[in-house]
Computed example of a mutant assay.
Amino acid sequence: MPSVLLEWNPDLPDPWPGGYGPAVAAVDDGGTFRRRIPLIAGFPPVAGTEVWLVLRGSMRGLRGLVGHGVVVPPGSGDTADAVTVDFDRLLPLGEQVPASLLEEDVPNLPRVDGAASVPSASVPALRRLWSGFLGADPDPLSPAPGTIAAEASGLQRVNAYEHNAEARRLCLAFHGNCCAACGLVPAQRYGPGTEALMQVHHVVPGTDLPADYALDPASDLVPLCPTCHAVAHTRVPVPYTPAEVRGLLAAAPDAASRAVGADAVVVGSLVSAEQQQALDDAARLRGLR
């Protein structure tokens, strides 16, 4: 699907229904903000088109990348002279990706005069810049809008990302159901019925893949257990590789020994009354006592 840069000048009358601030708040709550935009040259009215909102303000500092959205199919009553965009990420004014970073990190971006198409070769760099600027979300396995192509995941209405099940199946058939970082085999550790716990990880970050990339599950994906997968994605925009996660695991015993304090529970230590109470409460909640 195409990607376009859409210009917005906040010095002009506010085109956001209810104001831009409430739109930012609505998106921050995990939703989207729908806005009708008049058709202009360079803005293809194709459902699925990715929209990058670019600020152009006369005030110093109000320039840069401020939002991301997707064109949605027209609904009943929509006119042909406008297009509907669901914005899924909006940054507060003053917190946008600076224009200087766009110019430095994303090659061949066109000059925006209303709207302009993003060259397909520039899209991976744009995603990487956007991802690195946003940083890791509380759930590092839920990609922030704009960090991967829409074709790479399906967004459910509950805001859960569903990955390609067939690609996962082929990856595990080729590599086996063993974590490439820690070596965990769920069925050996936890017993039968736990094979579905294994996840798969992109060897090449999704931010670097062009929209028309054809995924090879055997060479592009590797198995990672849920814990190692989450750890890999705590670094953005380029996640840790399985080898780097293994390095973190190898260094963990020394780090743990330095971090152990008087209140830490380790093998052979006495459990405090508060810690024992917490264990008892958890057991009762699980119905074990």
Results as ranks from 00 to 15, higher is better:
residue 2 P to N: 13
residue 2 P to F: 09
residue 3 S to I: 07
residue 3 S to R: 08
residue 5 L to N: 03
residue 7 E to K: 15
residue 10 P to A: 11
residue 15 P to T: 12
residue 16 W to M: 13
residue 20 Y to I: 15
residue 21 G to P: 04
residue 22 P to M: 12
residue 23 A to L: 08
residue 23 A to S: 06
residue 28 D to H: 13
residue 29 D to C: 07
residue 32 T to S: 14
residue 40 I to A: 14
residue 41 A to S: 13
residue 42 G to V: 10
residue 43 F to D: 08
residue 45 P to D: 00
residue 46 V to D: 00
residue 48 G to L: 09
residue 53 L to S: 10
residue 56 R to D: 05
residue 57 G to L: 05
residue 58 S to T: 15
residue 58 S to P: 03
residue 59 M to Q: 14
residue 60 R to V: 15
residue 61 G to D: 05
residue 63 R to L: 15
residue 65 L to I: 15
residue 66 V to E: 07
residue 69 G to W: 00
residue 76 S to W: 00
residue 77 G to I: 03
residue 77 G to A: 06
residue 78 D to I: 05
residue 79 T to R: 14
residue 82 A to W: 03
residue 84 T to N: 13
residue 86 D to V: 01
residue 87 F to R: 02
residue 87 F to I: 10
residue 94 G to R: 06
residue 97 V to S: 12
residue 99 A to S: 15
residue 101 L to Y: 04
residue 103 E to C: 07
residue 103 E to Q: 14
residue 108 N to E: 00
residue 109 L to P: 04
residue 111 R to Y: 01
residue 112 V to A: 11
residue 113 D to W: 03
residue 114 G to P: 04
residue 114 G to M: 06
residue 115 A to D: 03
residue 120 S to V: 13
residue 122 S to K: 08
residue 125 A to R: 05
residue 126 L to K: 03
residue 127 R to P: 08
residue 128 R to Q: 14
residue 128 R to K: 09
residue 129 L to T: 04
residue 129 L to A: 12
residue 131 S to F: 07
residue 134 L to E: 02
residue 137 D to M: 08
residue 140 P to V: 07
residue 141 L to C: 13
residue 142 S to W: 07
residue 142 S to N: 15
residue 142 S to E: 09
residue 148 I to M: 10
residue 151 E to G: 10
residue 151 E to V: 13
residue 151 E to Y: 06
residue 152 A to P: 00
residue 153 S to N: 12
residue 154 G to L: 13
residue 155 L to Q: 06
residue 157 R to T: 08
residue 158 V to L: 12
residue 162 E to P: 04
residue 170 L to I: 08
residue 174 F to R: 15
residue 175 H to I: 09
residue 176 G to F: 04
residue 177 N to W: 03
residue 180 A to F: 06
residue 182 C to D: 01
residue 182 C to M: 02
residue 185 V to I: 09
residue 188 Q to I: 08
residue 191 G to H: 06
residue 192 P to S: 00
residue 192 P to H: 01
residue 193 G to Y: 02
residue 197 L to T: 14
residue 200 V to I: 13
residue 201 H to D: 02
residue 204 V to P: 01
residue 204 V to Q: 11
residue 209 L to P: 03
residue 216 D to L: 04
residue 220 D to P: 02
residue 221 L to D: 01
residue 224 L to V: 07
residue 224 L to E: 05
residue 225 C to H: 02
residue 225 C to Y: 02
residue 229 H to F: 03
residue 229 H to T: 01
residue 232 A to H: 00
residue 232 A to D: 01
residue 232 A to W: 01
residue 232 A to Y: 02
residue 236 V to A: 14
residue 237 P to A: 14
residue 239 P to K: 11
residue 242 P to E: 03
residue 245 V to G: 04
residue 247 G to L: 01
residue 254 D to T: 09
residue 255 A to S: 10
residue 257 S to P: 00
residue 258 R to V: 06
residue 261 G to T: 13
residue 263 D to C: 11
residue 264 A to P: 05
residue 266 V to S: 03
residue 267 V to Y: 10
residue 268 G to M: 06
residue 269 S to W: 02
residue 270 L to H: 11
residue 270 L to C: 09
residue 271 V to P: 00
residue 271 V to T: 08
residue 275 Q to L: 12
residue 275 Q to K: 11
residue 275 Q to Y: 06
residue 279 L to C: 14
residue 280 D to N: 15
residue 287 G to T: 09
residue 289 R to M: 11
